[in-house]
Nucleic acid binder design. Structure first.
Lengths: 244, 244
DNA sequence: GAGTGGTCTAGACCACTCA
DNA sequence: GAGTGGTCTAGACCACTCA
């Protein structure tokens, strides 16, 4: 590959390599957790220098799509990995320290997408959905009540058994059962008064306000995959965010 | 500079260059908005190759401490810059689109640090504080009620006049009046019931829950500078967060 | 010892800015 | 045209892993 472009629409080689690697991730040529070819192999495959491949891989590693391990190789990032299990969980205990929520499935049924959900998931209004409700406990006390909506077409065969088999761990289940890796999430956070269902299931004193976190989760190529609404009792926990 | 280290405690050259550049930022050798020397000049100053300086600068640019402009040079990042004015503001309107809050100063007085604040700001318990209260309006409607606490020792001469002269824009005021640039913030978010002051100043219906955002803001070298508590009416706005 | 990614260099050439 | 950062290469050597 070479770069004979002159000024208008100049695209660096390493950007093109990034796109090629991302396409291999989308196509499933390399699956989450697997090693990708070495930098030298990729360089000869794409006909560029190792340095150019390095730059492409570095940016993909910065975006958490790949993980490099000196001496071992470069791997497709996976939600199953130890340190990424709680990557998208921003709820922290007031006492400090990580929380390890236990999920309990309340419901798993089919539904239809209204226009709002359809727009967020980039599917047609009326398309079939999987609707999931779950409760998350921390130290045996209810902390989060969640409703999750997925495009049924992408999750064929998903049911309560599958979810329970994976102990309600959704994103690692997405990967191993459906080959879908969540790469980023966007959240909108509000304070709300609890509804009666939340009061009951989260065992609240009436009047206690909740955090309401609406999330859209994306896979490779910024494709939306999941919509989620979480109600969180923030009496003894908070949502943590660091802005650099 | 050369790197004669063998295995134990190996520190790459570019990391050492990063530290040297950061020290120049802390010392004020280059102030926010100013250009730093060119890569070639820095390379000869530090006795390394241009590539090594580039790697150091790239990481500092990723951390938003420097900004590179092709053809012009590399500059110390500044809060005053157009696109960074709202960098730490995560509140968004339900209708979408950026908000442009107008600040109104309610109070600026001296206080003493209790042990909790002292620990967060890494100062002594009982040390003198500047305590500021302000209200932020969007489209002439009150949205945020904030209390800010600063170590008085770092902000000598700060008073209501100074704040008003800067139209209540705190972080650009920190830079131009005190040479303190905020580089990162950490926030803890909860849902709370409003107190009577918030009900009055934010013109709430009683019972409407609020987002409570507690922030610690840091300058170069992860030094804490500001503690802030914001109460936000999330009826028509939300806190936006993207996790990659 | 072979293979991986990580650092560092020197040098060529390009895109962009400004006078 | 001079000066800046941006891309790309080729090559040397290092740190780390694994057999």
């Amino acid at each position: 590959m070479n770069n004979t472009n002159s000024s208008p629409s100049f695209h660096p080689l390493y950007q093109q390599i990034k796109i090629l690697i991302t396409q291999s991730l989308i196509s499933g040529e390399w699956r989450p957790g697997e090693a990708i070819p070495s930098e030298i192999e990729l360089a000869s495959r794409f006909n560029v220098s190792q340095g150019t491949v390095r730059k492409a891989i570095s940016e993909l590693a910065d975006e958490n799509l790949l993980i490099r391990h000196q001496g071992k190789g470069t791997f497709v990032a996976s939600h199953t990995e130890e340190r990424r299990q709680l990557h998208f969980v921003r709820i922290t205990s007031d006492k400090g320290g990580v929380i390890y929520p236990e999920g309990k499935l309340l419901e798993c049924r089919r539904g239809k997408a209204d226009s709002a959900i359809a727009k967020l998931l980039e599917i047609n209004t009326g398309a079939s959905l999987v609707v999931i409700k779950r409760l998350l406990n921390v130290s045996a006390r209810p902390l989060l009540l969640e409703e999750i909506r997925l495009a049924a077409a992408m999750f064929k065969g998903l049911n309560a058994d599958v979810i329970n088999r994976h102990e309600c761990k959704m994103y690692s289940m997405f990967e191993s059962e459906f080959g879908i890796r969540i790469t980023q999430v966007v959240e909108q956070i509000k304070a709300v008064a609890p509804n009666s269902e939340a009061v009951k299931l989260l065992k609240l004193n009436t009047g206690a306000p909740l955090l309401c976190i609406e999330r859209v989760a994306y896979t490779y190529g910024d494709k939306p995959v999941e919509w989620r609404k979480s109600l969180c009792n923030s009496k003894e926990h908070y949502y943590m965010n660091k802005i650099v």
